[in-house]
């Protein structure tokens, strides 16, 4: 393998630093709910080693939060945990698909490995750059490495602090999760076409949460809402023709 020229290496690190810097503010929020996750993980009965392994290998905030709902030491529902991670992370199919222009033919294999470090945060920053005609794999990786370090450090801190903070709800920390995803949801609003699918998703989720314990409300709500959105969109396109 050819050694990269110094200028190419400099360009990599300047893009890497830019990506990390762009993600810094949002990584404060990543760290905030990483601590919350660590605290909840302790209450759910995860050991420090389990926290390190899950944050280090799974590295997916929403899937890890959902896993805590199902975590019952002694009778761990392994299949349901894996299935829930699959379902909650399904959105990454779409997110990483949009990163295709960063990886010219022949580098897609390396690109697939880089996808391990994609989070909602560095993905959003990178597609923002790409829309301006910039954006590189190094920019994506810079944000990803920062997010990874924040998530690992924060979840371990939360797991250790768990001894001091027994009830995160007493500090309102349980709401960090709801508030963060509510804000992310509001940021996704693109117009009236989103109203019906979101309402269908919300109502189906509320009904499911009353009937079935665990994380199935996310699956049922997500499927009902997205199918409703697609049906409406196709019908609108059909009647416009």
């Amino acid at each position: 393998m050819e050694k990269p020229l110094p200028s190419a290496r400099n360009r990599f690190w300047s893009q890497f630093t830019l990506g990390a810097r762009a993600c810094l503010p949002v990584c404060i929020s990543v760290a905030a709910y990483g601590v919350v996750w660590g605290v909840l993980a302790r209450q759910a009965g995860l050991s420090l080693l389990e926290v390190v392994l899950m944050s280090g290998l799974v590295f997916a905030g929403s899937a890890q939060f959902v896993a805590l709902d199902q975590w019952t030491p002694g009778a761990l529902p392994v299949g349901a945990l894996v299935l829930a991670a699959l379902i909650v992370n399904l959105r990454y199919l779409l997110l990483t698909a949009t990163l295709r222009p960063l990886f010219p033919p022949g580098t897609v294999g390396r690109g697939a490995l880089a996808m391990a470090l994609v989070t909602d945060e560095n993905w959003a920053m990178t597609v923002g750059e790409m829309a301006k005609g910039r954006g590189t794999p190094a920019f994506l990786l810079g944000g990803g490495v920062l997010a990874y370090a924040c998530w690992m450090g924060a979840t371990v801190t939360g797991r250790l602090l768990g001894a001091a903070i027994d009830d995160p709800a007493a500090y309102g920390l349980d709401f960090a999760f709801t508030a963060t995803f509510l804000a992310l949801l509001l940021g996704m609003w693109r117009g009236k076409a989103d109203l019906v699918p979101w309402l269908v998703a919300a109502l189906a989720a509320v009904a499911t949460a009353r009937l079935i314990p665990g994380s199935w409300h996310i699956v049922v709500g997500g499927l009902c809402g997205s199918l409703a959105g697609a049906l409406l969109e196709i019908r609108r396109a059909g009647s416009a023709r």
Binding site: R91, M188, A201, G225, G229
Partner: peptide, 18 residues
């Protein structure tokens, strides 16, 4: 169209019960 609507629907389903 279905894939496009999944992210918003999943987030709505996540926060609605809470």
């Amino acid at each position: 169209a279905w894939l496009r609507h999944i992210p918003g629907a999943v987030l709505a389903a996540l926060v609605a019960p809470a």
